[in-house]
């Protein structure tokens, strides 16, 4: 489980942004996590609620936007939302697809009071 170390990096990024913007406190932190990113959102939430204490983000809410897995078919051009172990085109059933979304692991935004 690497959610804790990942959370550490997340918090450091948030603190750096808060400092750059002279924030008094962070209101919320939004992260975008794809279903194929290999991260368990609930573990990230737990980790965040522990390590944010005594930082500028102590009262920040962690907002996790989950992103579904979507693929583009390289044969017929259709775009499908798929299960994470079935990355096939819904239209022509081809395996020849490319991932459009679903592997995101991104700090999307930080909201704060100045």
């Amino acid at each position: 489980m690497h959610e804790l170390s990942l959370c550490d990096d997340l918090l450091n990024q948030v603190i750096a942004i808060a400092q750059q913007n002279n924030a008094q406190s962070v209101e919320s932190v939004t992260v975008t996590i794809g279903a194929l990113a290999g991260i368990e959102p609930s573990l990230l939430e737990n980790a965040f609620s522990i390590i944010k204490i005594n930082t500028v983000a102590e009262f920040a809410q962690l907002i996790i936007r989950k992103v579904p897995v979507t693929v583009l078919c390289l044969q017929c051009g259709a775009k499908s939302e798929v299960l994470l172990n079935h990355l096939l085109c819904h239209v022509c059933k081809s395996h020849d697809t490319s991932l459009i979304s679903g592997d995101e692991l991104v700090l999307a935004s930080v909201a704060f009071f100045v």
């Binding site: 942004i17 992260v31 991104v106 700090l107 999307a108 935004s109 930080v110 909201a111």
Partner: peptide, 18 residues
């Protein structure tokens, strides 16, 4: 993202594994 009263929101788009 919409601005709320007293809250400034900035987009970051930084990979968590950067």
């Amino acid at each position: 993202e919409k601005p709320k009263n007293g809250v400034t929101t900035i987009s970051v788009l930084e990979n968590l594994l950067s």
